[in-house]
């Protein structure tokens, strides 16, 4: 996979990599991509893709209010919160 650019894909995936990790993961992923390329041998003409083994479509339920998590419980694992809100760095100047 000559066109696999680990820096670019890691950026898309939002994962910071140290230079040593980049080198190591890049080489390993090159091997793995080389292996999975064997799927190119398979004739898939006219074959429909499978996203789920047993697709159930339009699964709905009645719109009835039921017990749910409290605001406090839903936020209990937030690493930074204030006033019942998740805190993030400034987005707009």
């Amino acid at each position: 996979m000559s066109d696999f650019n680990i820096q670019y894909v890691a950026k898309l995936a939002r994962i910071d990599l140290a230079p040593e990790e980049e080198r190591r993961l890049g080489a390993q992923l090159g091997n793995i991509l080389g292996y999975v390329a064997k799927l190119k041998e398979v004739d898939v003409t006219g074959v429909e893709p499978t996203a789920h083994p047993f697709p159930l479509v339009n699964v709905t339920r009645p719109d009835e209010p039921a017990e749910s998590l409290s605001h406090e419980e839903a936020m209990r694992n937030a690493p930074s919160k204030a006033g019942g809100l998740f805190m993030v760095p400034k987005i707009v100047e």
Binding site: L39, V44, V47
Partner: peptide, 14 residues
């Protein structure tokens, strides 16, 4: 090339 093709091969395996 990868994901869609893999889903099609998945159909063949199934």
């Amino acid at each position: 090339a990868f994901y869609l093709r893999a889903q099609k091969v998945r159909t063949l395996i199934r």
